[in-house]
Deep mutational scan, measured.
Amino acid sequence: MQIFVKTLTGKTITLEVEPSDTIENVKAKIQDKEGIPPDQQRLIFAGKQLEDGRTLSDYNIQKESTSHLVLR
Rank of each mutant, 00 (worst) to 15 (best):
E18C: 13
D21N: 06
I36R: 02
V70R: 08
L69E: 01
V17R: 00
I44W: 15
K6C: 13
T9L: 10
D39P: 07
A28P: 00
R54S: 07
Q62M: 12
K29S: 03
K63H: 15
T12S: 07
E34P: 01
T22E: 02
K33M: 12
I13V: 05
Q41K: 01
L71S: 06
Y59N: 02
P38F: 12
A46G: 11
Q62K: 12
E24L: 14
K11L: 09
K6S: 08
D21V: 04
T66R: 09
E24W: 15
G35Q: 05
K48I: 14
S57D: 08
T66W: 08
L71E: 06
Q40A: 09
I3Y: 02
D21Q: 04
Q2N: 11
E34L: 15
L56Q: 00
E24G: 12
P37D: 06
T12V: 14
M1V: 06
Q31P: 01
E24K: 12
T55S: 08
P19N: 05
E64M: 13
I44N: 05
L69D: 01
T9N: 13
K11F: 08
I44G: 03
T66L: 10
K29C: 04
D32Q: 14
V70D: 07
L43W: 03
T22M: 06
V5E: 00
T7L: 14
D21S: 08
V5N: 00
V70P: 01
V17C: 09
Q31D: 05
E18M: 14
I13N: 00
V26H: 00
N25H: 12
M1R: 03
D32L: 14
T14L: 10
T22V: 04
Q40I: 10
Q49G: 06
I3M: 05
Q49T: 15
A46W: 09
D32A: 14
T22N: 04
Q49A: 11
T12G: 03
S20T: 13
S57C: 05
T55R: 11
Q40D: 08
L50G: 02
P37N: 07
P37I: 05
S67G: 15
Q40E: 11
S57A: 14
G35N: 07
Q40Y: 08
G47I: 02
V70E: 13
E18D: 12
A28I: 13
H68Y: 15
T7N: 06
I44R: 05
F45E: 01
V17G: 02
Q62T: 15
E16W: 14
N25G: 08
T55N: 05
T12N: 05
H68S: 08
T9P: 04
E16N: 11
N60T: 04
T7R: 06
T22R: 07
K63Y: 10
I30K: 00
T7H: 05
F45C: 04
E64A: 10
T9F: 12
M1E: 02
V26E: 00
I61W: 04
T14D: 04
I44E: 11
A28C: 09
K6A: 07
L71K: 05
T9A: 12
T22F: 08
I30F: 02
K27W: 03
N60E: 07
L50C: 05
T55I: 06
A46P: 01
I30H: 00
I23C: 01
S20K: 08
H68M: 13
D21Y: 06
V17S: 02
L43C: 02
Q62F: 13
I36V: 07
G47D: 05
T22H: 04
T12Y: 11
L71D: 05
K48G: 05
E18P: 03
P19R: 06
S65Y: 08
I13T: 02
D21T: 10
S65E: 08
G35D: 05
E16D: 12
E64N: 15
V26G: 00
E16G: 06
I61L: 06
T22D: 03
E24T: 09
S65T: 12
Q2K: 14
G10T: 03
E51T: 06
A28R: 15
N60Q: 08
L69T: 02
V5D: 01
R42M: 15
T9W: 15
D58L: 03
L56K: 00
Y59E: 03
V26K: 00
K29M: 13
L69V: 07
K27Q: 02
F4W: 07
I23E: 00
G47Y: 04
T14V: 14
V26Q: 00
A46E: 15
P37A: 08
R54E: 05
K6V: 14
L56E: 00
T14C: 12
S65I: 08
I23F: 02
S20I: 06
P37K: 07
G10K: 04
L15F: 04
V26N: 00
I30D: 00
Y59Q: 03
E16A: 09
R54H: 11
I23D: 00
L71Q: 06
T12I: 15
K48A: 09
G53I: 06
D21I: 05
L8W: 15
D52I: 05
Y59M: 03
V26C: 03
L71T: 07
T55M: 09
Y59A: 02
V26I: 12
R54N: 09
I30A: 01
S67I: 15
V26L: 10
K63T: 11
E24N: 07
T66G: 10
K63A: 15
M1Y: 14
K33L: 13
D58E: 10
A28S: 11
K63S: 14
T9V: 08
K33Q: 12
H68D: 07
L43S: 00
K63W: 11
L69K: 01
K29P: 00
I61N: 02
L43R: 00
T9E: 10
Q62I: 11
D52N: 11
T7A: 05
D52G: 06
T12L: 14
I3T: 01
I23H: 01
L69M: 07
H68T: 13
I13G: 01
Q2E: 09
G53L: 08
G35Y: 03
T7G: 05
R54C: 10
I3N: 00
T14H: 07
K27L: 05
T55H: 05
V70S: 06
I44H: 08
A46F: 09
E64W: 14
G53S: 11
S57Y: 09
E18T: 14
V5I: 14
E64R: 07
H68E: 10
I61A: 02
T14Q: 09
Q41V: 09
S57V: 07
Q62C: 11
R72Y: 15
V17I: 04
S67M: 15
E34N: 08
L43V: 03
L50S: 01
D32E: 14
I23S: 01
Q62Y: 12
R54A: 07
T22Y: 07
V17T: 03
E64F: 14
T14M: 12
T12A: 05
Q41T: 05
E24I: 11
A28Q: 13
L71V: 10
K63I: 08
T14K: 09
L15G: 00
Q31V: 04
T12Q: 07
K29G: 03
Q41I: 11
E24M: 13
D52M: 05
R72A: 13
K33W: 06
K63G: 14
L50K: 00
S20A: 08
D32R: 13
D21R: 01
K33G: 04
S20Y: 11
S65F: 10
V26R: 00
R42W: 10
F4D: 04
S67C: 15
T55G: 02
G47P: 01
K27H: 02
R72D: 11
P19M: 08
L50M: 12
I30T: 01
I30V: 05
R72L: 15
N25W: 10
D52K: 04
A46T: 05
T7D: 06
K11V: 08
G35R: 05
F4L: 09
F45A: 03
Q62W: 10
I13C: 02
Q49L: 14
